[in-house]
């Protein structure tokens, strides 16, 4: 048996009339890289936002090391969030701060470290993502790929146990995407971290993931290893993996 870190059971979420998650059951194992797959707008971001309490579940439970996450509030929620690093789809860097301040903000606000200590950590994290010495740059000066990397440096600044990558390569050119893929691998190696990678980038899945789940119409229609993913006979899974229109099987037109 693998060592389960996070366990999701019967997770449901609707926005008004629109049911986005309709009963999700899945586990995240300690130290693995799990790909969360699905088409645009299927609720991948909604799913991972529940893990850090950015959204409240309508039903179901999420446990991490046996502690319930759904319904956490106040300082318990903030303590829980400190176990995560979150790389947002659009990087979500703070426009009003420079690169160094972006990476160091969590440390500045949550720890009693001195400015010098924080600057040293910021320099180290920026080096880890291959961006030494850009502390003083404004966010507006950065390219898309650089923003993602700064976002990653910010996400790992407080040494999280789990990193959530929300579409880390979407909108990037293939070379930059490959660089991000290498970074995800090196994060895993150097920090011994559990990684959740939300994506529909199949080469990235091949490159970095150990296991994968596939979200479709509010449910997981596949969970298993990456080898099983590529061997799956399920028409929708095959369609997703090969990037083709689903074969007609009664439900498709």
């Amino acid at each position: 048996m693998s060592d389960t870190l996070i366990s999701i059971r019967g997770l449901e979420k609707a926005f008004g009339e629109q049911a986005v998650l309709r009963g999700i059951d899945m586990d995240v194992h300690r130290g693995e890289t799990l790909a969360i797959l699905g088409g645009s707008g299927t609720g991948k971001s909604v799913l991972v936002k529940h893990l850090v309490g950015l959204l409240d579940a309508d039903a179901g439970s999420i446990t991490m090391d046996e502690g319930e996450v759904v319904g956490l509030g106040g300082k318990h929620l903030y303590a829980h969030r400190r176990r995560f690093g979150y790389l947002f789809q659009g990087a979500a860097l703070f426009d009003s701060l420079d690169v160094g301040e972006n990476v160091g903000l969590g440390l500045k606000e949550n720890t009693s470290k001195s400015d010098d200590e924080i600057n040293a950590i910021v320099a180290e994290k920026l080096a880890l993502v291959g961006l030494e010495g850009i502390e003083d740059k404004r966010v507006a000066e950065l390219s898309g790929g650089m923003k993602k990397r700064v976002g990653l440096a910010r996400a790992i600044a407080m040494e999280p146990e789990v990193i959530i990558y929300d579409e880390p390569t979407t909108g990037l050119d293939p070379v930059t995407s490959a660089v991000i893929g290498e970074l995800i691998l090196s994060m895993k190696k150097s920090l011994a971290i559990t990684s959740l990678v939300v994506t529909h980038d199949i080469p990235l899945v091949k490159r970095v993931a150990d296991r994968a789940v596939l979200l479709h119409e509010g449910k997981l229609i596949f969970q298993g290893t990456v080898a099983e993913l590529f061997a799956s006979e399920h028409p929708r899974v095959r369609a997703f993996v090969t990037g083709t229109v689903p074969v007609s099987n009664g439900e498709a037109q």
Binding site: F88, A92, E109
Partner: peptide, 25 residues
């Protein structure tokens, strides 16, 4: 405009994930 832009570009969520309360900050 400032806070709204931060909200729709997920910068407010980013504060939350850094354990910084957006109202305080």
């Amino acid at each position: 405009a400032e806070i709204g832009t931060m909200k729709v570009t997920e910068q407010v969520d980013a504060l939350e994930t850094l354990s910084i309360h957006p109202v305080r900050y």
